[in-house]
Design a protein around this nucleic acid. Sequence first.
DNA 1: AATGAATGAGGGTTCATTCAT
DNA 2: GATGAATGAACCCTCATTCAT
Lengths: 213, 213, 213, 213
Amino acid sequence: MGIRIPVFFRDLMSRIMTKPLAREERKKQLLDAAITCFGQKGYHATQISDIIETAGVARGTFYLYFQGKREIFDYVMTELFGQVQKEIKTIPKEALSEIPNQIRGNIKRVLTLLMNNPLLAKILMSESVGLDEELDSRLRTFYNHILNYIRRGLNQGQEMGFVREGHIEIMAVSLLGCMKEVLYQHLLGTEKATPDEMTEEIYRMVIGAVQKQ
Amino acid sequence: MGIRIPVFFRDLMSRIMTKPLAREERKKQLLDAAITCFGQKGYHATQISDIIETAGVARGTFYLYFQGKREIFDYVMTELFGQVQKEIKTIPKEALSEIPNQIRGNIKRVLTLLMNNPLLAKILMSESVGLDEELDSRLRTFYNHILNYIRRGLNQGQEMGFVREGHIEIMAVSLLGCMKEVLYQHLLGTEKATPDEMTEEIYRMVIGAVQKQ
Amino acid sequence: MGIRIPVFFRDLMSRIMTKPLAREERKKQLLDAAITCFGQKGYHATQISDIIETAGVARGTFYLYFQGKREIFDYVMTELFGQVQKEIKTIPKEALSEIPNQIRGNIKRVLTLLMNNPLLAKILMSESVGLDEELDSRLRTFYNHILNYIRRGLNQGQEMGFVREGHIEIMAVSLLGCMKEVLYQHLLGTEKATPDEMTEEIYRMVIGAVQKQ
Amino acid sequence: MGIRIPVFFRDLMSRIMTKPLAREERKKQLLDAAITCFGQKGYHATQISDIIETAGVARGTFYLYFQGKREIFDYVMTELFGQVQKEIKTIPKEALSEIPNQIRGNIKRVLTLLMNNPLLAKILMSESVGLDEELDSRLRTFYNHILNYIRRGLNQGQEMGFVREGHIEIMAVSLLGCMKEVLYQHLLGTEKATPDEMTEEIYRMVIGAVQKQ
DNA sequence: AATGAATGAGGGTTCATTCAT
DNA sequence: GATGAATGAACCCTCATTCAT
């Protein structure tokens, strides 16, 4: 299985020339490989072999950094959640006139991030429901963060008189759904619009859906 | 020898009338078991053992009716697609004043169906992306049917002057997303509203999102 | 699986028009089907399904006539052994001048039989060694019959002064091998000669191999 | 850090010199086990469990070295073919007076090899016809090699005036059959002669069968 | 006698994880 | 720290045989 000499050479080189990778670096290397693999094939279809091949690391090494497949998937999720959340900025209360642009900005940043990281998007959209209880709850938590952000916006809007009365909860969920679905169909290849088009249209939908008449 | 004709008659009857029925019944029994299992655990985590235990048949029996796990999953998908599509009714052009109620009706029927069949909903929401190409395309087809329905409605609305101008495609996808997400969060347990509340709120979102000012 | 009405019709017809097949006829029908199948695919690759399909009989019916796969294979072997042995005629002692023709005749009859029944030949040549001890011994017995015939011929020949001295046993086995191998290569498609050519050449080999100088 | 170079050196040495060897050893160990099992029970009756038990390795280990049952059987066949072919030596044209001894030598070497390796012999004699097309053709190829050798010998003999005219093809096949059958009956336990006796007798048959009067 | 749906033991293969070097 | 050969539980599927009708 495979060519032996190159392995030896790679090894030889790495032993002579480089100090062992710092623990965090090596972990990141594996994490990146895992994101690639999970994104391409999904959790179940991804094998440890895929990850270590992508990372260029021996089988045993993997288990020096992660307890197993489930754990690295956990780490992947956490990493991705973090990336998305970084893009969402709370709208400051005082910048009243700026609200439309802020909302637009948030929508656009998240869409752009996800459209540029299809793997990330794919994992967020499609995986993990039903994998097991613990992961489901992690996903729930993630979307709750986002929903909270939307809820706060809607409440604020109501106070300020922009947003019509109504079931805030359902409104928030619906708005989240708009964005997820546009993204999802984009992943499926159904939808070919640009981030700007998508942002603008979603913005108009969102505004229309919740504004006072 | 004995009395031959009666035996033959009973047999004839049973062959024409009952046996094929029995076959379909048994198949349905397995299909139901599969829906239950896939709904609870997802495709990958579901084992043939789960399905046959749930159905209460022997291992070999399963393979008399389905070629394997993939095939029964296909059947399950087809079945579920059919159930959802049955609930969607095309709105007749002439009943102009009836349009709001018709839309409400469609939303409510689909939501009710899916809320009463959480397994069905779960499968539609969460499975199969990334499972494999063939199944992905089946899901794509399904949602395309629904999207077509929504697109037609939006186009009609534009002609009639109800619906504002805009990127029909993204609008349609967004509306689908609203409904899917409300349902999905309901499944996750985040959202506890009743079908009526959900229907009403979604209806208002949808109308607001697309109507002319 | 399959068209139901025709089955019913076939059945109906057979019930109304024919009396149930006599036990021996039905058994023969199954045996013929089995010879066909074993000949085409070998013992292991032949499934009960193949046999009953070929025979046009239901699964359960098979077990009314044979205890199982092994038993019908036993019957097949016995049947084939019988056919071959029928073709071999002992050469009468007195017909001294007739010996060459008698030998030629035996060789030709057996070759012709086997070349016209490739299934029979294939089974005799290739199957059953290693299947299990009992079958092995049956095969051994069969070839012993033939070897006995050859041994007797050689002994007689020695008494009469035609056949050189030597290890009769090995000579007999070798002669059997000549014929088996020519037949076997014929089955494999290597050898395309006619029965007459083969008979003549084998006869010359046999004679040359054992005759006194 | 510690002393790095020695570790690296030991490792380097072991990678280049010992590890690959170990791999081949393990493969050989499995191959030997497979030869034993296939020889004793035949292809179909041999289970992977038999092979790994005989080899004393775990189930998964088997699949590190072979893709499956079919592949290891292929390897076994190749191995055995090689062993037999090694024993056959082409007779040099010039050594005219040596021909008888050379033929005797070939016959004896092959017989001895096969009589000392009953498993090898059993596989060559009895397996694989009808197993599947690919393996059949492999066997055909093997015997063709041997037949070619015999054909060449006969042609040479005709040119030199030793061998009578006749259908070379059938003569060659017959001679092969002599040897195969003697061996086969030896395996079945019918024939108890020593290699020397068998060699001598076969030699005389062969010579008698083909020589000019 | 005939049917064919149902059975379930058994076999081949996969793959996450371990551990000696 | 790094390696990768070894492990074995787990899973899918087949097919000879049974038995209620």
